[in-house]
Amino acid sequence: MLMDFLLWYENGPVGVFVRESLWGYPFVLTSHAIGMATVMGVALMTCMRVMGYAKGVSVLAFDKLFTVGWAGFLLNLWSGIMLFAGSASMYFFQWTFQLKIGAILLGGVLLKVVMNSVRSNQSGWVQKFWAALCMTSWLVGVTTGRLMAYITA
């Protein structure tokens, strides 16, 4: 059932476009890199600030940057779904891909937790702990994303 779905998606028009169109794969891959730099950039800077860097900048100022971060995330969601179509039946079973998706989901949830704790003025070390965990999670996401090209098992 799962394999049928993956093969259906992979052999459908999106998969064919990504695999066979001359500029399909480079275009989607480039979009993924821009989205990554944006969403990762906003997440990392927010975590750095919460962990104590540039204390003069109000943490809540990052709320505004989140609009840009969300745009990056949506670009990556779209391009990620497109790239997945290129080899869905392989990517799905790669542990690097599974870890990447898990780390991004965890990173997103932790970012929400970090900002909620900032808004409710919780004690400093709790926020810093969540921020450090959040930053680690995003870094694991980008690392496993790169390693997908090298570890195909």
Binding site: G41, M45, K64, L65, V142, L147
Partner: peptide
Amino acid sequence: PLCETLHFIGLSFMFGALLVVDG
């Protein structure tokens, strides 16, 4: 692969910092 990973991490830090300043 290590350099590629660090290249992407470096890019994210640089671009994120630029978003704060330029923003």
